[in-house]
Computed example of a mutant assay.
Amino acid sequence: MKLISIKRETKPEVRFTKRMGALSTNVTYIKKQFLSIPYKTLHKYRETYYGEVKDCENINLAR
């Protein structure tokens, strides 16, 4: 049994940008786990409609 593992999880979220408004997209989280308990998010990104991969730092959750 591994003590530390890394898991990738994708879930749909609604994001908001000033230029486009509300955007429903799949966001992928890469999390570090200790004994199957997630404790740190290493990276999160989303894939656009055109297939580009973008970091989630430049897009907000709130309006």
Rank of each mutant, 00 (worst) to 15 (best):
L23S: 10
S5A: 00
L23Q: 09
E13V: 09
T17S: 14
K32F: 06
R15A: 07
E52N: 15
V14E: 15
D55W: 04
P38A: 00
R46T: 10
S24W: 09
T48S: 07
E9R: 10
I4M: 01
D55N: 12
N26Q: 12
T41C: 04
N58Y: 03
K18S: 12
R63L: 11
V14N: 12
E13D: 05
R63K: 12
Y50G: 07
N26S: 06
Q33G: 00
E47K: 11
R63V: 11
K40G: 01
K18E: 11
T48Q: 04
L35N: 06
A22N: 08
I30S: 04
K31E: 12
R15H: 08
A22F: 08
E13K: 13
E47H: 05
Y39C: 05
N58M: 01
K32T: 13
V14K: 11
S36C: 00
S5Q: 00
M20K: 15
H43K: 15
P38K: 02
E52I: 09
L23T: 12
R8Q: 08
K2D: 05
L42N: 01
L61G: 14
Y45T: 13
R19A: 09
L35C: 07
R46A: 08
R46H: 06
N60C: 03
I59W: 06
E13L: 10
F16N: 01
R15C: 05
F34M: 11
N60A: 08
H43V: 10
K44P: 00
V27C: 07
R8L: 04
C56Q: 03
T28F: 09
A22T: 08
R8S: 05
E13M: 12
Y49Q: 14
I4N: 03
N58H: 03
E47T: 15
P38S: 07
S24A: 11
T41Q: 02
R15K: 15
D55I: 05
K18R: 09
R8I: 07
M20E: 10
L35F: 13
I30D: 02
T41R: 01
E47V: 15
V53K: 14
Q33V: 02
K44R: 10
R19Q: 15
R8C: 00
N58I: 03
I37T: 07
G51R: 07
G51M: 12
C56R: 00
Y29G: 04
N26G: 06
K18P: 11
D55T: 09
T28M: 05
N26K: 13
T10R: 05
T25D: 13
T48C: 04
T17C: 01
I59P: 00
F16K: 08
I59D: 01
L23N: 06
F34Y: 15
I37G: 00
V14Q: 13
R15S: 05
R15E: 03
G21S: 04
R15T: 05
P38I: 04
R19E: 10
Y49C: 12
V53L: 06
K40A: 10
R46W: 09
E13S: 07
R8E: 12
T48K: 01
K32L: 13
P38Q: 03
A62S: 14
R63I: 15
I37P: 02
M20L: 14
